[in-house]
Amino acid sequence: MQISDSGYYWCAVEIGDYKTLDDGYYLYLKVQSAPGVSVVSSSVSGHEGGDISVQCLYSSEYQYEVRQWCRIKDQSCYTVGRTGTPQNSSVQISEDDGRRSFTVLMTGLSLTDSGWYFCSVGELQSPVQLTITKPQRAPTTILAATPSDFETDM
Rank of each mutant, 00 (worst) to 15 (best):
C56P: 07
S60P: 02
V37A: 05
S42F: 04
S38D: 13
E65T: 02
S59C: 02
L27I: 07
A34L: 14
D23A: 12
S41F: 12
L27Y: 13
V37C: 04
Y18A: 04
G50M: 04
Y25I: 06
S43H: 11
Q55T: 14
Q63K: 14
I15Y: 11
K30L: 10
K30G: 01
K30W: 01
H47E: 13
S60Q: 08
D17E: 13
A34P: 00
D51Q: 15
V40D: 15
S43T: 08
S42N: 15
L21Y: 01
G16S: 13
Y58M: 03
L57W: 01
E48R: 09
V40R: 08
Q32A: 06
Q63R: 14
G24V: 02
V39D: 07
S38T: 14
G46Y: 01
D23V: 06
L27M: 14
E61R: 05
K30Q: 10
E61W: 09
S45H: 14
I15L: 15
Y18G: 01
S42Q: 13
S60W: 04
Y58K: 04
Y62V: 00
S43V: 10
Q63G: 00
V54N: 08
D22P: 00
G50F: 06
K19Y: 11
S38K: 10
D22N: 13
V39A: 11
K19L: 12
E48C: 03
V37K: 05
Y26C: 08
I15R: 13
S45V: 04
D22S: 14
I15N: 10
S43P: 00
D23Q: 08
Y64L: 09
E14G: 02
Y25K: 03
L27E: 03
G24K: 14
Y26M: 07
Q55C: 07
Y58N: 02
Y62H: 11
H47T: 13
S60R: 08
Y28C: 03
G49D: 06
Q32I: 01
Y25A: 00
T20Q: 12
L27R: 04
Q55E: 15
S60V: 10
H47K: 11
Y58H: 11
Y25C: 02
I15W: 03
Y58R: 05
S53Q: 14
K30R: 11
Q55R: 13
D17P: 00
V40F: 07
D17S: 09
P35K: 14
K30V: 06
S38V: 03
L21N: 06
I52L: 14
Q55I: 14
Y28R: 05
Y64R: 09
L27P: 00
V40K: 14
Q32K: 05
S45E: 15
V39Y: 06
A34F: 07
